Computed example of a mutant assay.
Amino acid sequence: MQPSAPLRRVATLAATALAVVAAVALSPHSAGASAGQKLVVNPTTSEAAGKVRKAGAEPRKVRFDDSTLAATMVTLNASEPIPGTAWVPDPRVNKVVVTADPTVTGAKLTQLTTVLKPLGEKVKLERTDSELKMYLSGGDPIHGSNVSSVRARCSLGFNVKRSGKPDAFLTAGHCGNRVTSWSTSDGGAEIALVPEGGSSFPGNDYAIAEYNAGAPEHPSEVNLYDGDAQPIAAARDAVLNEAVQRSGSTTGLHGGTVTGLNATVNFREGQVTGLIKTDICAEPGDSGGPLFSGTDAIGLTSGGTGNCTDGGTTYFQPVVEALTAFGATVG
């Protein structure tokens, strides 16, 4: 049985606080930290390892520090995007893990190999069995309305408020780019409209849609697809190895773990940076849906590989970045 949401949140926040203390003490001789049963910090020197142990965390001495892995990410992000690839710093293996899907063959694979070779042991290449794709096809489903020329379906992320502006909801940017008028049913009456400048993709993957005066009630909560809902009171950044859940209109509620932070993904539609990587499944139509932990909003569904029959990997846009961009709050 999993601990209650409040207990998980307390444990996560405690681990986060300890990570901050350890990072301050170690800088620049550390290579990340992860929260599990016990906080693990990756020092690069014996002196730093002693400080970690004294602070109550578990040291695991590694070769590459944070600045080295960050520089590796900068190099990869500056390279020509190769659709079907993704990369993320992984403290568990002390490398930047590069993922390539089955479409990366021939000239694309040669291009990727050319990019990775100079980086040597700082990178690790992994292959997936399914294509890396955006989940555009939606929490609760949202559809292109009766005045929209696009009949796409996505998922509502989080309901938000902004000072002096209409109530609104967040969803994925690759949804907001294509559909600017939303309804609760396919081709139904408009309930919300994406304002000018209200969608950001590629680079980011978030959008905002402002509710019309006659829109249905929109409390700050997430549909759990069991007849109940999870209230959302605040927003924060993800913590590596924490337990999280996501909700989407195609596959409902699914849970898993945060397996990476600051991931870059090269979709066919464009590159997105700064994403959260998880081992949670998702499918087309789940795009834009909420990633959360207890009452905390964490992210918006972007895309990934696999499905909810065989399992998969899903990437999420951090919600704090989206809230900041639009001057919005949850709860």
Rank of each mutant, 00 (worst) to 15 (best):
R53G: 02
P102H: 09
T257Q: 08
A172R: 02
V40R: 02
T85W: 12
V330A: 09
D140I: 14
M134H: 07
M134C: 11
A35Y: 03
P318T: 07
A168M: 10
V97F: 08
V97D: 10
V21P: 00
C175P: 00
L261K: 00
P195H: 10
M73W: 04
L109H: 06
T72L: 14
C281E: 00
K161G: 05
E47D: 09
P118C: 13
R151V: 15
K95R: 15
P89F: 15
P6T: 05
A297C: 04
T264Y: 07
V24S: 08
T257M: 12
G36L: 11
E131D: 09
V96D: 03
L156Q: 04
D296H: 10
L224M: 12
V330D: 01
G252C: 04
V179M: 06
T99P: 02
A209W: 04
Q245P: 03
P3W: 15
D167Q: 12
S46W: 07
T180V: 13
L300E: 01
T314W: 05
T103I: 10
M73T: 04
G203V: 08
A23L: 13
R151E: 15
F267I: 03
G50V: 09
T113N: 11
G303K: 05
D129H: 09
F64N: 06
G164T: 03
P290Q: 07
T329V: 15
D140V: 13
V62I: 08
A19D: 07
N266Y: 15
G198P: 00
Q37V: 13
A152V: 09
Q37K: 06
L69H: 03
A49V: 05
G187C: 08
T128Q: 03
S27P: 00
R53M: 04
L13S: 08
V93P: 00
H218P: 00
G306S: 04
P202Y: 14
L69G: 01
S130H: 08
A14E: 11
G285D: 06
K108V: 10
G188L: 07
